[in-house]
Design a protein around this nucleic acid. Structure first.
Lengths: 296, 296
DNA sequence: GTGAAAGCGCTAACAC
DNA sequence: GTGTTAGCGCTTTCAC
């Protein structure tokens, strides 16, 4: 009968049913390999459950985020996934008041009870630093991210904790702030290595910056890991293929996306269930960019 | 009046107007940096024109592509962007018969008149090879991609043309097929470098594979570029930060996304305009991974 | 079981 | 100008 190309109109169906099968995914930058991996997890499981995902990039811009959110709710999305976007307490409150299902990923929203999936960044920061300490390093630098972002702040805290536990005095000239891009790791390393008493190791708060650090160090004639140990964070695909291969803290990027999507869909089914927060473990992956400290 | 949170229901609006402001974007893998950059161009300009983009990954799987396309047209998307997905002539014909606006990106669909935006891959392949020839190399390998993909095939053709023009005999043991991922570049290099008469230079058909090649070469104790020159393709952000920095063929990834979106939106406005095909130029970017051939 | 009818929230067309 | 109305294509309910 309708073998001549009939496709039901989902618009009419959705209008009638008062719900769509689209979910909004809001990320700072889908071209960043970390978010890209999380996004794959989201898209794959959404597709598996017959849902479409609408991609929104904010570049960390609050206005853009507001505009995207607005567009999403006008389009009656079934729910929204905030992946480490600049979500604020007010926005989340507003959304909850409107009863739009949402889960926030890779970031904490202070003072709100909301579904959340995040990584144990503190643990990761500790492991990275401990690894460096174990290798005999005492001048350990940290290239952090924006301090207003909870993942970044927690990683830095882990670094500070382990330093303290190891009896290494905290030297604030050794922590420089980056923005999670290659370039900022590169710049940070140049600054750090120009110090009178430069570090022998650096913990970069993500892999991209770690790659930037290695790049800068190499250009300055230093050998990694002989002259400088570097550890990253995320364990992006690339990390296995840098030169040298990157020692890093792995987090389950794809699975974060999968879990977040499942939580969102569960929330859609039951808006009044108690909020759930999942915190996933990290893992140290030792590759070639770290080595025992060279005695000068 | 409606300062108490009224948002128009776009569903109803769209149902009535018989058109939505969503566009479907179908890519093989949004986590691949090349597609990720193109996707950013698409998402940004869509957002700028008040359109939402629905993200669909196919992983090169024809069934997944069909399922995604189906879902998109059920959702009455305004149009579809195929970014180098496995689109076939029949699919495109079917879509055109249904009068759904579409533009295909980074790939040619043989025998169909359809809006297309692509890069001059042939030119790029020529430039990469010529660069290597100019540096004195004569044993130049090529790590290609799937031969069924037009970008890949054209780059390879460029390589072969320049070899012929330079009087270098074509040695098919020097071309090995990859899949555009890091790993396959790595494997290809191991195979190539184990040859009795190994290459002194390799042209990898994308940057990811080039990074894999450098990784393998370095592990085998070769120095890049002294012992082996490597050129990539795409000029991904990473290319500036590899060790050594990667010489590569740049293509305007972001702009491809922008242009494709503009063409799609124009097509939505006028379904019956003559099809348009845009072919963008590439550019050689010389960095540190290529050097004059070392006389043994 | 099969069939008719109302209505989701909006817009365009038409009347006033 | 301002106000009313029909109908987009589907689902759900209710009558048969």
């Amino acid at each position: 009968m309708q073998e001549l190309g009939y496709k039901p109109n989902a618009l009419a169906r959705n209008l009638r049913r008062q719900q769509t099968s689209s979910i909004g995914m809001i990320v700072p930058d889908s071209a960043n390999p970390f978010f890209a991996e999380v996004a794959r997890g989201i898209e794959d499981t959404s597709f598996g459950q017959n849902h479409s995902v609408i991609l929104c990039n904010t570049d960390g811009d609050v206005d853009k985020q507001a505009a995207h959110t607005d567009l999403l709710i006008k389009n009656q999305v079934a729910g929204i996934l905030f992946v480490a976007a600049g979500i604020s307490t007010e926005l989340v409150n507003d959304l909850q008041r409107r009863r739009v299902p949402l889960v926030v990923v890779d970031r904490e929203v202070p003072g709100v009870a909301v579904d959340t999936v995040l990584t144990n960044h503190l643990q990761g920061g500790c492991m990275a630093t401990q690894h460096l300490v174990d290798l005999g390093h005492r001048r350990i630098a940290c290239v952090s991210g924006g301090s207003d972002l909870s993942p970044s702040a927690e990683r830095l805290t882990g670094y500070q904790q382990k330093l303290a536990q190891s009896g290494i005095p905290y030297d604030e000239t050794l922590v420089v702030k980056g923005d999670f891009q290659y370039e900022s790791g590169y710049e940070a390393a140049r600054q750090l290595l120009a110090l009178a008493d430069p570090p022998t190791a650096v913990f970069a708060c993500n892999d991209l910056m770690a790659v930037g650090v290695i790049s800068a160090a190499t250009q300055l004639g230093l050998r990694v890991p002989d002259d400088l140990s570097v550890v990253g964070f995320d364990d992006v695909r690339l990390a296995s293929f840098t030169n040298p291969p990157l020692t890093t803290i792995a987090q389950p990027k794809y699975d974060i996306g999968v879990l977040a999507t499942e939580m969102l869909l569960a929330r859609v089914r039951n808006l009044d269930a108690p909020p759930r927060v999942e915190r996933l473990d990290t893992k140290l992956v030792v590759r070639g960019s770290t080595a025992v400290r060279n005695e000068p």
